[in-house]
């Protein structure tokens, strides 16, 4: 098993005929993803990389009812409509890669997903990866790079940063640990799926023993995760690092969501909440391997 994506994942890519789309599709296939269809309005009937293109997601699903995951890589101004279309067509997992999506668009997509019982990852997500099984998005980059960082294993990764997802996987690999599923939740403040929701999925996954998470200043994801642990919704070890302990209030750091306001979002507040709930908070990224080993050892005892 794994969460959200595995060997049974069948993908539709919206925006597949663009340069980025073709590139992405090629790399995903090399990493083992099965892409059933692509969607580009006006290009129905064509093929790209040997994958059939449809005008709409509904048409794609009619021809390929097995489609169960959508990837949105259209320009950000068109991303809202693409994602809502995908949800309306009945796809229950949609990953939005575009960044700088107006946040009202993200909130609208999330409202539609809620009503339809669909899961939205992103916007501004690098994607999801279950090593050896499937990939939705661009996590890990070129396949040779991906393999230097990710191997199959039993640790889940949740991360607000694409780069640090890979860095964490690399440190885990060096310490002998592999990954069940890695999820880049997106660097924005308003994202479809929060840590707490993902932790619940990892809790239910028999093939995940622990979760490693990279958090940072801004937003309420980390605090929500702490609440989920306290409520008993997640009982496995959670090993986290919170970036931005020395960030100043009011400034935005790269990710749209990485901002500390006067009264919330500070790294210190997040660390306190997580520690209080029983999560392991490390101070250095490279400690993740030893900390995870230690946590699992204690659990085994």
């Amino acid at each position: 098993m794994a969460i959200l994506i595995d060997e049974n994942t069948r993908i539709v890519i919206q925006g597949m005929t663009g340069r980025e789309g073709r590139l992405r599709a090629g790399m995903m296939r090399q990493a083992g993803a099965v892409i059933s269809a692509g969607v580009t309005p006006g290009r129905g009937g064509e093929e790209a990389q040997g994958i059939p293109i449809y005008d709409t997601v509904t048409a794609a699903r009619a021809a390929h009812p097995e489609i169960n995951a959508g990837l949105v890589i259209v320009p950000s101004a068109a991303a809202r409509d693409a994602a809502i279309e995908c949800i309306a067509a009945g796809v229950k997992l949609v990953c939005l890669m575009p960044e700088r999506l107006p946040h009202h668009d993200a909130l609208e997509v999330i409202a539609h997903a809620r009503a339809a019982g669909a899961i939205v990852i992103g916007p501004n997500s690098p994607g999801l990866l279950s090593p050896g099984k499937s990939i939705l998005g661009g996590l890990g980059g070129r396949v040779d790079m991906m393999r230097t960082a990710f191997k199959e294993g039993r640790i889940g990764i949740i991360s607000r940063s694409g780069g640090n997802t890979m860095t964490l996987a690399y440190y885990l690999m060096k310490s002998g640990l592999g990954v069940s599923t890695a999820i880049g939740v997106g660097g924005d403040t308003y994202i479809g799926t929060s840590w707490a929701e993902l932790l619940e999925l990892f809790e239910a996954d028999r093939d995940t023993d622990a979760v490693v998470a990279y958090g940072e200043i801004g937003g309420v994801n980390e605090e929500g995760a702490a609440d989920a642990i306290r409520a008993g919704k997640y009982k496995k070890p959670l090993i986290t690092l919170i970036g931005g302990q020395n960030a100043r209030q009011g400034m935005r750091f790269g990710h749209a969501g990485a901002i500390v306001s006067a009264h919330s979002g500070s790294a210190q507040g997040k660390i306190a909440a997580l520690r209080d709930a029983g999560a392991i908070v490390i101070d250095h990224l490279d400690e993740v391997g030893t900390a995870t080993h230690k946590a699992l050892g204690m659990v085994a005892l």
Partner: peptide, 15 residues
């Protein structure tokens, strides 16, 4: 830094 995440993490090592 290349990547917001690593930049924040590296800053937290430097400070």
């Amino acid at each position: 830094g290349v990547g917001t995440g690593v930049s924040l993490a590296a800053m937290d090592e430097l400070v």
